[in-house]
Amino acid sequence: MAISVMVFGQLTDWTGGNTVQVEGVADTDTLVRVLKEKYPGLAQVKFTVAVDRKTITTNTPVHPGTTIALMPPFSGG
Protein backbone atom coordinates (compact mmCIF):
# COMPACT_ATOMS: atom_id res chain seq x y z
CA MET A 1 0.00 0.00 0.00
CA ALA A 2 1.23 3.46 -0.85
CA ILE A 3 2.52 5.91 1.71
CA SER A 4 1.43 9.49 1.29
CA VAL A 5 4.09 12.19 1.64
CA MET A 6 3.27 15.87 2.17
CA VAL A 7 5.67 18.22 0.43
CA PHE A 8 6.17 21.85 1.49
CA GLY A 9 7.60 25.05 0.07
CA GLN A 10 9.79 25.06 -3.00
CA LEU A 11 10.26 21.27 -2.77
CA THR A 12 7.00 21.15 -4.76
CA ASP A 13 8.94 22.62 -7.71
CA TRP A 14 10.63 19.22 -7.91
CA THR A 15 7.75 16.92 -7.02
CA GLY A 16 5.18 18.81 -9.08
CA GLY A 17 2.58 18.75 -6.29
CA ASN A 18 2.13 18.97 -2.54
CA THR A 19 1.39 15.27 -2.03
CA VAL A 20 3.28 12.32 -3.53
CA GLN A 21 2.74 8.58 -3.10
CA VAL A 22 5.56 6.09 -2.46
CA GLU A 23 5.12 2.31 -2.67
CA GLY A 24 6.96 -0.47 -0.86
CA VAL A 25 9.20 1.35 1.60
CA ALA A 26 9.59 0.35 5.25
CA ASP A 27 11.62 3.20 6.71
CA THR A 28 12.41 6.88 6.19
CA ASP A 29 15.95 6.35 4.83
CA THR A 30 14.54 4.17 2.02
CA LEU A 31 11.66 6.55 1.47
CA VAL A 32 13.98 9.55 1.07
CA ARG A 33 16.30 7.57 -1.24
CA VAL A 34 13.37 6.46 -3.44
CA LEU A 35 12.06 10.03 -3.59
CA LYS A 36 15.48 11.40 -4.56
CA GLU A 37 15.75 8.82 -7.34
CA LYS A 38 12.30 9.70 -8.61
CA TYR A 39 12.77 13.49 -8.22
CA PRO A 40 16.54 14.13 -8.58
CA GLY A 41 16.07 17.82 -7.67
CA LEU A 42 15.34 16.75 -4.08
CA ALA A 43 18.91 15.45 -3.80
CA GLN A 44 20.22 19.00 -4.23
CA VAL A 45 18.31 20.63 -1.38
CA LYS A 46 18.06 20.32 2.39
CA PHE A 47 14.80 19.41 4.10
CA THR A 48 13.62 17.98 7.40
CA VAL A 49 11.48 14.85 7.58
CA ALA A 50 8.59 14.58 10.03
CA VAL A 51 6.80 11.30 10.75
CA ASP A 52 3.35 11.51 12.30
CA ARG A 53 3.84 15.22 13.06
CA LYS A 54 7.21 14.84 14.79
CA THR A 55 10.62 15.56 13.23
CA ILE A 56 12.91 12.54 13.09
CA THR A 57 16.49 12.32 14.27
CA THR A 58 17.26 8.85 12.95
CA ASN A 59 15.98 6.27 10.47
CA THR A 60 12.35 5.65 11.41
CA PRO A 61 9.95 2.84 10.39
CA VAL A 62 6.97 3.84 8.25
CA HIS A 63 3.72 1.98 7.61
CA PRO A 64 0.70 2.58 5.40
CA GLY A 65 -1.21 5.29 7.21
CA THR A 66 1.92 6.99 8.54
CA THR A 67 1.94 10.72 7.77
CA ILE A 68 5.22 11.92 6.31
CA ALA A 69 6.12 15.57 5.74
CA LEU A 70 9.14 16.98 3.92
CA MET A 71 9.83 20.49 5.18
CA PRO A 72 12.46 22.88 3.80
CA PRO A 73 13.57 26.01 5.64
CA PHE A 74 12.13 29.34 4.43
CA SER A 75 14.23 32.48 4.49
CA GLY A 76 11.82 35.22 3.42
CA GLY A 77 10.75 37.95 5.77
Partner: peptide, 25 residues
Amino acid sequence: DMFPEPPAAGEVLNCADAGVLGSLP
Protein backbone atom coordinates in the same frame (compact mmCIF):
# COMPACT_ATOMS: atom_id res chain seq x y z
CA ASP B 1 16.91 21.26 15.81
CA MET B 2 14.51 21.91 12.94
CA PHE B 3 17.11 22.86 10.33
CA PRO B 4 20.57 21.81 11.65
CA GLU B 5 22.79 23.30 8.93
CA PRO B 6 22.13 26.19 6.55
CA PRO B 7 21.15 25.36 2.98
CA ALA B 8 23.73 26.02 0.28
CA ALA B 9 23.79 29.45 -1.31
CA GLY B 10 21.02 29.83 -3.89
CA GLU B 11 19.30 26.59 -2.76
CA VAL B 12 16.36 28.39 -1.18
CA LEU B 13 15.12 31.53 -2.86
CA ASN B 14 14.22 34.63 -0.84
CA CYS B 15 11.25 36.92 -1.52
CA ALA B 16 13.20 39.03 -4.02
CA ASP B 17 13.98 35.95 -6.09
CA ALA B 18 10.95 33.75 -5.51
CA GLY B 19 8.21 36.33 -4.96
CA VAL B 20 5.68 36.52 -2.13
CA LEU B 21 1.99 37.32 -1.96
CA GLY B 22 1.60 40.63 -0.10
CA SER B 23 -0.89 39.49 2.53
CA LEU B 24 1.02 36.29 3.41
CA PRO B 25 3.64 37.96 5.65
